[in-house]
Every structure is written in C-alpha cells, then in structure tokens.
Design a protein around this nucleic acid. Structure first.
Lengths: 196, 196
DNA sequence: TGCAAATATTGCACGGCGCGCAAGTTCATG
DNA sequence: CATGAACTTGCGCGCCGTGCAATATTTGCA
C-alpha cells in the first residue's frame, strides 16, 4: 500500500501529461478554437469521458496540472533567516528543481499564448494558485495581519517567476537556476522603479 | 448623429448594467451555479439571445463591463512630473471619479466572491485588463525596455486598487478618494516588506 | 496464484452554453 | 414620413461538462 499510492499516482501524472501534449500539439497545429475536447481525447487515445476525469475543461488541459509547493519547503521557509526576498527566491528555486520541467512543453505553451491571447486568463489563473501558496508562506513569517501586502508580494513573485520561466523555455542555454536569478533581478528592478 | 452615438451608448450602458444587476441578484439568491443564462435574461426582461449580445458569458455579466482609462488621463500621466507612485495613484484616483461607481453593485460582487470563490478567476481577468492599461501607461515614461518590470508594477497597483475598492464597498463611510489612499498605503507597505 | 476490493475507463443521456443567421423592430435623421 | 443603421429576437446547431451505471484493470492479500 505504501508503494501503491505513488505507482498509481505516477500513472495518473503520465496520462495527464500525455493529454496535455496532445492538446498542445493540436492547438498549435489547428488553432485553439477549431479543436474540440473530443479531438484531444482521441489524439491522446482515451475516451472523451476520461478526458474530463483528468481536466475540468479544455483550457486546463492546455495549461497542465498545477504543482503544489511541498510541505518540507514550507517548513524550511518558515525557519529560514535570510531576507524575505532571498528566502522566497530560494523556495522557488528548490521548487523548480523538485518538479520535472519539460522545456518543449513550456515552449509549446509559450508559442500557444503568443498565438491565442484569449488563453492568457487560463494561464494566469494557474499562476494565481501559485501566488496563493506563496502568500500563505509569507504569512507564516509576517503574521496574519499583513495579509493584503503578503498577497501583493506573492503575486509579484509569481509573475516574475513566470517571466523567468518563459525566458528559460525559449533559451536552451539557460539552466533551471537561471530562472530564479531572473526572478531576483526583476524584484530588484521593481524596487528601483518604485523609488522613481 | 453627434448626439445619437452618446444616446445609444448610454442606453447600452444602462441595459448592460441592468443585466448585471439581475445576474448578481439571482446569483446571490440561488447560488451561482444553479442559475442559467436564460434565467438572467428573463429576470432582466430580455431574450437569451440579447443577453449574449451584451456579455460573452455568464461570468462576464456578473463581473460587469470593463472601464477603459481615458486618453486625456493617459496624456496627463505622460507629462506629469511627480514620482511614479504618486502619479499612478493620481491617475487611478481620477479614473475612479470618472466612472460612476455603484456601491451596492460592488457590495454584491464582494459578497458573491466570498460565497463562490470559483468566480475569482473571472474577476481577476478583469483586473488583468486594467493592469495591462497601466502597464502601457508606465511604459510611456520608462521607455519600452522596461516592459517586464512595468507589467509587474502595474499588476501591484491593479491588485492594490482592488483591495481599496473592496474596502470602499463594505464601508459606507469611505469616500472615493479613500480608495486611492488605501492604495498608496499598501504600496508603501510592500516597499517596506521587500526590505525585510 | 487467485480472489476480493479499490480504482480507472467508458458509453450514454441530458441540459446548459455560445454563436451564426435571417427576420423583424426601433429610432435618429434628413 | 421615408430611410437606413443599430438593436432585438427566434431558431438551429454543435460543443461543453457531468451524473450514473456498467465494465475493465490494478492492487493487496491470503
């Protein structure tokens, strides 16, 4: 039973990933709004009904499953003693290492967003979930009375991470760690911009 | 013909507003996912087909039409000589005055979001459009090479404005100008938080 | 190995969604 | 009051998303 959970889980991840790949392939080939959920299911070799067991809708399939920040990372952050910025960057750096990133998937998403901007809200909703997790993290250090600011800072980090992610997707020379250095750079630039 | 445009326009706004009110009323009474677009149309006294002439979907009707920052405001901002923060706050202050805000509508939205969090992405998509407009504004002053930071700063302001807006909605003692003072306060707190 | 329980997949049916189209209606303007 | 632009409406159609129940597959355990 100890192994079972992870085995089935791995299988689910794999299927979800295949569905996403199929969706991205079709959307990039035929255009997002001329494909149907049925086409995606068929391309992925599953039934339409099974498609909806994995994703609630077409857009979610394109964006993919949302990774969750692991508990041990959260624990590390709570007890870390660097600046807020540094520790948040470090959390995100480790997080990016913990999940397996596929550069080609990322690149497909990037191209698709350029071609079909109407998908941006869906992608952004995914970012928003990351932002909420970060917000929770920040609150463990600032205390619950800083909720509004924590949300705002979390959103900055999530969006800046996305920028780094996009750069990584389209530049094969970049390493995973470079994503968070871009993130750190952008945070510094924001601080500068806010002084102007 | 000079008057016609504005007359018809006013009528359109009015109808859109009535549809939104009907949608919010029903959603708050029966719950967002047990109402249909047909019910909303019927409650608003229009046909289902006309509903879709005004809003692309149910969620948009609940969120309402997105106001656009006027050109003269944009011109003012480009030539203003205060700090970026101060001038952005001032733009948003004037913007809030330029559009007619209905506190009861805002309150209904607020209550609805508390009750049906699944609507948050729709609301956030609307914020995102405001954010994009702000980003354009900022770029007129920083130059186009600061695009990523401008986007991030714009997003902070949009989100902070939303926070102020929510506070205004649920506190009848607040004036419109108080929205932007909350905004300014939160920006300052973020700066402080980023120094930690 | 083989059986029972847990879990996954699928087909089906159904109601809501969203839009193109064409016919009818309203209304400011000349 | 005639005219044409803008608005409303009904209809039809295909896609979306889900509950349900039957079937298939996998897993843990004897």
């Amino acid at each position: 039973m100890t192994e079972t959970a992870t085995l089935r889980d791995r299988r689910r991840r794999q299927t979800a990933s295949e569905i996403q790949a199929a969706a991205l392939r079709l959307a990039l080939r035929d255009g997002h709004d001329s494909i149907t959920t049925e086409m995606i299911a068929s391309e992925a070799g599953i039934s339409l009904r099974t498609f909806f067991n994995y994703f609630p809708n077409k857009q979610s399939a394109l964006v993919g499953r949302q990774p969750v920040i692991e508990q041990d990372l959260a624990d590390w952050f709570r007890n870390a003693d660097g600046t807020l910025i540094d520790d948040l960057c470090e959390v995100l750096r480790r997080h990016m290492h913990a999940i397996d990133l596929h550069r080609d998937t990322a690149r497909m998403i990037d191209r698709l967003l350029a071609r079909s901007p109407e998908l941006m809200p869906a992608f952004h909703a995914s970012l928003q979930r990351l932002s909420q997790q970060l917000s929770q993290l920040i609150l463990t250090r600032t205390g619950p009375d800083h909720a509004p600011e924590a949300e705002l800072v979390a959103e900055i980090f999530a969006h800046a991470l996305a920028n780094g992610f996009r750069a990584w997707a389209s530049d094969t020379d970049m390493k995973i760690d470079d994503i968070t250095s871009i993130l750190a750079t952008q945070i510094r630039r924001i601080q500068a911009l806010l002084q102007r």
